[in-house]
Computed example of a mutant assay.
Amino acid sequence: MYKVRIKSHFSSAHNLREYQGACERLHGHNWKVEAYLKSKTLDKLGMVEDFKMFKKHLNVIMDELDHEYINELEYFKTVNPTSENIAKYIFDKLAIHYGEKVDKVIVWETDTSAAEYTKD
Rank of each mutant, 00 (worst) to 15 (best):
F10Y: 15
H29P: 07
K104C: 05
A114Y: 08
L73S: 01
I70L: 10
L45H: 15
K44A: 15
L16D: 01
I6K: 11
K119Y: 13
T112D: 03
E116Q: 07
K88D: 02
E64K: 13
K119T: 10
E74M: 12
K7P: 02
F10S: 00
K55C: 13
V79M: 09
S12V: 03
I6S: 06
Q20G: 06
T78M: 12
K52L: 13
S113K: 14
A95C: 07
T112E: 10
I6P: 07
E64H: 06
L37I: 02
H29N: 14
M53A: 07
E18L: 13
Y89L: 11
H14K: 07
K77S: 05
T41V: 10
H9T: 11
H67T: 04
C23E: 15
N71C: 08
L65E: 11
D66E: 08
M1E: 08
A22F: 00
F76P: 02
E64A: 01
E74H: 13
N30C: 14
V33D: 01
H14T: 01
I61C: 01
L45N: 15
S12I: 01
N59K: 12
M53K: 15
I90T: 02
N59T: 01
Y98F: 14
D92P: 03
S8E: 04
E74Q: 10
F10T: 02
N85P: 08
L37M: 09
R25Y: 15
P81V: 13
E34Y: 15
E100F: 04
F91L: 12
H29S: 03
T78N: 10
N30I: 07
I70H: 02
V33T: 06
H14P: 01
